[in-house]
Design a protein around this nucleic acid. Structure first.
Length: 271
DNA sequence: ACTATGTCCTGCGAGC
DNA sequence: TGCTCGCAGGACATAG
């Protein structure tokens, strides 16, 4: 499931491969539409625009669009959210169009950008000035991080997943950051002391940076723009390891459900 | 203003 | 072997 490191990997791959390219035509398929903006608005906005840059904002991929005639002002952004199983692939046009392909963007270089999403939780939209709702986890300073959680009663796991607080953290990296910080996922936010918050702030950044370096975690269907898998799943210490021995103390890893999400932790290492 | 829970969607794997 | 069933979860709606 694409979270911040996977989306970052995809955005970097796209920036490398399609930045500077011009959109020649747009095909949008599917009956119940996985689109936040109307298909006609998306197609009209993308048509004949140059992709000047591709970047990540939270879990969103942001395509910066420009007028190919060199007009200085920005001409909207194309926003792609991959949901759980969405992928953006750069394909040669003769490549077979697989099941669950919901959008095909033809580029003037001859390549195609395809949005494929079996579970259809992904969303496409166009907007003028996109801003992710929450703070950027890799940039946030400790004092701002601590302030996000001030006075909240919800479990820390839920707070980490709340995109209005932090933009980009999902189930895997929330569990991994909490393990590295030695904090149990069920702990109520307001009960975390300053030292615990400091450890969490640091471990979250470290785990996200390390995952980006390894190209993200390939569990479920995640692949990058070239169809390659990431390697951070090999570094998971708790996620998906229920019943297996903790890599630090050998205690079996526990799994509980918090906010409808499976949450993994070591009952000895995490307090 | 928060917090908690249900819903969407499809593929896959466990279990019989 | 072949079937059914339940689970996976990001974001949003709705209820409390």
């Amino acid at each position: 499931m694409p979270e911040l490191p996977e989306v970052e990997t995809i955005a970097r791959g796209l920036a490398k491969r399609v930045a500077g390219d011009v959109i020649e035509s747009v095909w949008l398929g599917s009956k119940p539409e996985p689109f936040k903006s109307s298909p006609s608005e998306i197609a009209a906005t993308l048509q004949s625009k140059k992709i000047s840059d591709v970047r990540r904002a939270g879990k969103h991929i942001v395509f910066e669009l420009a007028f190919p005639n060199g007009s200085a002002h920005q001409a909207h952004q194309w926003i792609v959210h991959l949901g759980m199983t969405g992928s953006l692939l750069v394909c040669p046009p003769e490549g077979e169009v697989t099941k669950h392909t919901h959008a095909i963007v033809k580029l003037s270089s001859g390549r195609e950008l395809r949005f494929v999403d079996p579970r259809r939780f992904g969303r496409l939209s166009v907007i003028e000035n996109f801003e992710a709702p929450g703070a950027e986890p890799l940039a946030i300073k400790f004092e701002d991080f601590a302030r996000l959680f001030y006075g909240r009663k919800t479990p820390i796991k839920s707070a980490l997943l709340n995109q209005k607080l932090l933009s980009g953290v999902g189930n895997i990296y929330a569990d991994e950051a909490l393990f590295r910080a030695g904090v149990r996922p069920r702990r109520r936010v307001a009960t975390l002391n300053r030292d615990e918050l400091r450890r969490l702030h640091g471990s979250l950044k470290r785990v996200l940076r390390e995952a980006i370096q390894l190209g993200g975690s390939s569990v479920s269907d995640y692949v990058d723009v070239n169809g390659d898998e990431g390697f951070f799943q090999l570094k998971h210490r708790v996620y998906g390891r229920e019943g297996k021995p903790c890599l630090v103390c050998r205690t079996p890893i526990k799994r509980v459900v918090i906010a409808g999400r499976s949450s993994h932790y070591c009952p000895k290492c995490q307090k």
